[in-house]
Amino acid sequence: MSISITPAANERMRHFLATTPGAAGVRFGVKRTGCSGFSYVVDLAERMSPEDQALDVDGVRLIVDAKSLPLVDGTVIDFQRQGLNAAFVFHNPNATGECGCGESFTIS
């Protein structure tokens, strides 16, 4: 299992974790939605469930649920600012397509 985060994403995640000291980590995964099938989920995790796996990625604890693991293996998480917008950006080698708006992706 391999997930990487860029320095910009690391800084943003550490900021979120610092403002919520009781958090178990940063939850990263996917959910079924959008016009292509899946969208990414990045949020603070209040706790872990038995099916979750915790990964220490450059000092950030990522928590990934069992169903998401094979879909996000190899993903690089970045954080980018463009004008007034700021968002996490995902480079997932498992994605075979994306919708036109970039909000969801497909895995064959």
Rank of each mutant, 00 (worst) to 15 (best):
S2T: 14
I3Y: 04
I3A: 05
S4V: 02
I5C: 00
P7I: 04
P7L: 04
A9T: 08
A9Y: 03
A9I: 06
E11K: 00
E11P: 00
R12D: 07
H15N: 14
H15V: 08
H15R: 12
F16D: 13
L17F: 04
L17P: 01
T20F: 10
P21M: 06
G22E: 14
G22A: 07
G22I: 03
A24R: 11
A24K: 12
A24I: 03
G25D: 00
G25R: 01
V26D: 00
V26L: 01
K31Q: 14
K31N: 10
K31T: 12
R32K: 10
R32V: 14
R32D: 12
R32Y: 06
T33R: 10
T33I: 10
G34T: 09
S36N: 07
S36Y: 07
G37R: 06
G37T: 06
F38H: 09
S39Q: 08
S39Y: 06
Y40L: 04
V41M: 05
V41Q: 15
A45D: 03
A45Q: 01
A45E: 02
R47E: 08
M48G: 09
M48E: 14
S49H: 07
S49I: 11
P50F: 13
Q53V: 12
A54F: 08
A54P: 14
L55G: 04
L55E: 09
D56K: 03
V57T: 13
D58N: 12
G59C: 02
V60P: 00
V60E: 01
V60G: 00
R61D: 01
I63V: 15
I63L: 03
I63Q: 01
V64S: 00
D65G: 06
K67S: 09
K67H: 04
S68H: 10
S68M: 11
S68N: 10
L71R: 07
V72S: 05
T75H: 06
V76H: 01
I77R: 02
Q80C: 13
Q80V: 07
Q80L: 05
R81Q: 12
Q82P: 00
Q82G: 05
Q82T: 08
G83D: 12
L84A: 08
L84V: 13
L84M: 09
N85I: 11
A86L: 02
A86S: 15
A86C: 12
A87W: 09
F88A: 09
F90I: 02
F90S: 01
H91M: 11
H91A: 12
N94I: 03
A95C: 14
G97Q: 15
G97F: 10
C99F: 05
G100C: 05
G100V: 09
C101A: 06
G102I: 08
G102Q: 08
E103D: 06
E103I: 14
E103V: 14
E103A: 15
S104C: 15
F105Q: 02
F105N: 02
F105P: 01
I107D: 03
S108Q: 13
S108N: 13
S108G: 10
